[in-house]
């Protein structure tokens, strides 16, 4: 079976004659809605749910899509980002999917969105109260790489036995002189559950702490939903002598000059020219429109 190779494209797909609002059937929505409420009530705890088949392969964010489909309504304005960008194939396809199945307004502006579905980034523009950030999560279990058995990790969460995670991070320090984990850097939610922030860069971890927006996480293949309510304490695991620090960049964005953002390296030409630009395209465009400029050096 090779579903990954067969990309779905809702721009090309013929209109589906009959589908439910947001595609999912109502029974599935209710089940996911109940899981979301439990996840909110126990911040950081992974609620099992019966993931449904979606008209896109796993790896395309089916968990996030199911969460969005279960909460979205006609009054919403949806933004979809992939690695910070609104215009990748994945982001465009998911946006079209919801346009087609709900008719909701869509936007690329973080400030205009009521729901933001994301893969691997948190927008640079601060989120606000009432917004919902829906993460697509591939591996929801932060302990999975240390302990493959689900029964064991579940018990570790139940007993707050997180020593193994600290040992792993400390081995990083012993080997590299610092904690080498830069993506999916584990967080502690409200002092209780060690939680996977999804493969966002650790640069984004501080944005999760005391965030005014509701954060929902959907893992389709692994069948888990979890949540971080607004105004919840989210701390990145660290040590007194090796405190958590975000990635630092030694130059500003080449397009907008921002020096407090996460940058992507972009290859410019086949002579090896490259530049570093905001991974958040909406943030970068907004700054450029406001008159900010970078050096655009290659």
């Amino acid at each position: 079976m090779n579903t990954e190779a067969r990309a779905f494209d809702w721009a090309e797909a013929p209109a589906i004659a009959t589908y439910n609002f947001a595609y999912l059937d109502e029974q599935s929505k209710r089940m996911i809605r109940r899981a979301i409420l439990k996840g909110i009530a126990v911040p950081g705890y992974q609620v099992p749910f019966a993931s449904r088949e979606m008209p896109m392969p796993y790896g395309w964010g089916t968990g996030g899509v199911q969460v969005t489909a279960s909460i979205i309504g006609p009054d919403d304005t949806l933004k979809v980002i992939d690695q910070g960008a609104d215009d990748t194939t994945n982001a465009i396809s998911i946006r079209k999917f919801f346009q087609r199945t709900t008719g909701v307004r869509t936007t690329t502006a973080t400030t205009e969105a009521s729901i933001i579905q994301t893969r691997h980034r948190i927008p640079e523009t601060p989120l606000t109260a009432g917004q919902v950030l829906v993460y697509q999560v591939p591996i929801p279990e932060p302990l999975r790489f240390l302990e493959p058995r689900e029964t064991e990790t579940r018990t570790m969460h139940a007993l707050e036995e997180y020593g193994v995670m600290h040992v792993k991070l400390y081995e990083d320090i012993a080997r590299h002189g610092h904690i080498a984990t830069t993506y999916a850097y584990p967080v502690m939610v409200q002092g209780r559950y060690v939680t996977d922030p999804s493969p966002t860069p650790k640069f984004d971890n501080p944005k999760m702490d005391q965030c005014p927006a509701l954060q929902l996480f959907g893992a389709g293949r692994e069948m888990r939903i979890y949540a971080i309510p607004p105004w919840t304490e989210v701390t990145s695991l660290d040590f007194e002598d090796h405190p958590f620090a975000v990635q630092a960049f030694d130059r500003p964005c080449a397009l907008c000059g921002a020096d407090d953002v996460f940058l992507d390296e972009v290859i410019m030409d086949d002579q090896g020219g490259r530049m570093f630009v905001c991974s958040d395209t909406d943030h970068c465009n907004g700054r450029q429109q406001a008159g900010h400029a970078g050096e655009q050096e290659t």
Binding site: N20, F21, E26, K29, R30, R33, I36, L37, I40, A41, S70, I71, I72, G73, P74, A129, G130, L214, A227, P229, P230
Partner: peptide, 19 residues
Amino acid sequence: DPVLGGQAVFRCIMQAMAE
């Protein structure tokens, strides 16, 4: 309208649970 009616009520409950 069970589809949109349920959605509106759920969002209200979700927001109440989140805050």
